[in-house]
Amino acid sequence: MMELDEIDRALIKALSKDATQSAGALGRKLDLSQPATWRRIKRLESEGILAGRTLDLDREKLGFGVTVFLGVKLATKGRVSLDDFERAVTAIPEVQRVEHVLGMYDYRLRVTARDIADFERVLRRRIMTLPGVGDVEANVLLSEERRPGPL
């Protein structure tokens, strides 16, 4: 595992706030040259610490007003492989996140839909027809107070 110094940590923090900043702009903030900053970013990427840069979209403004968290318990673990389920569920565009979890359910899904009727369509026609799906529990997101940030 790579040792991070204070400059690496400051660089990660700055990128987590705005990943679109140029190496030159970041370097000015951190008192580094543009090439030195660029080399540090490339090293963090090659080590897998920076695994990509994401775009934070406003789902509601794009017409997706409902987010539902689904707990999915597979009915037949012996007959259907986890890989088959994961491959099938990740092909559904409304499923934004798939998490394999330990507990009452085998998977936790984050599903985004235009409205409740759209979610019902996705649930009935896509999710409930996946290989091995047994019990499903839905929790509708009412509000999101805290967004993920830097570690």
Rank of each mutant, 00 (worst) to 15 (best):
R39K: 12
R39T: 09
R40I: 05
R40D: 06
R40S: 04
I41Q: 05
K42F: 07
K42P: 04
K42D: 11
L44K: 11
L44W: 12
E45M: 15
E45W: 12
E45R: 14
S46L: 10
E47T: 05
G48T: 13
G48A: 10
G48P: 13
I49H: 11
L50C: 03
L50N: 03
L50W: 01
R53E: 10
R53V: 10
T54Y: 12
L55D: 02
L55V: 06
L55S: 00
D56V: 14
L57H: 04
R59Y: 05
E60H: 03
K61V: 03
K61C: 00
L62T: 11
L62E: 15
L62V: 14
G63C: 06
F64A: 10
F64E: 10
F64Y: 15
F64W: 15
G65C: 11
G65M: 09
G65L: 09
G65P: 00
G65I: 01
G65N: 14
V66W: 07
V66C: 11
V66H: 06
T67F: 04
V68W: 02
V68K: 05
V68R: 06
L70P: 10
L70A: 10
K73P: 04
K73E: 13
L74R: 08
T76C: 12
T76M: 10
K77F: 07
G78I: 03
G78W: 03
R79H: 09
R79T: 10
S81V: 06
L82M: 06
L82Q: 10
L82W: 00
D84C: 01
F85V: 07
F85G: 06
E86S: 09
E86M: 12
E86V: 13
E86G: 09
A88M: 08
A88K: 08
V89Y: 00
T90R: 07
T90Y: 01
I92W: 00
P93Y: 01
P93S: 02
Q96V: 08
Q96I: 07
Q96N: 11
Q96Y: 08
R97H: 07
R97D: 02
V98F: 02
V98D: 00
E99T: 06
H100F: 13
H100N: 12
V101S: 08
L102G: 01
L102R: 05
L102M: 08
G103E: 02
G103Q: 04
G103L: 01
M104F: 15
Y105T: 11
Y107L: 04
Y107D: 01
R108S: 07
R108V: 11
R108W: 03
L109A: 09
T112K: 10
A113M: 15
D115W: 02
D115F: 00
I116A: 14
I116V: 15
I116E: 14
A117Q: 05
A117S: 07
A117V: 03
A117G: 04
E120H: 15
E120C: 10
R121M: 08
R121F: 08
V122Y: 00
V122I: 12
R124C: 08
R124L: 09
R124Q: 12
R125P: 00
R125L: 04
R125M: 00
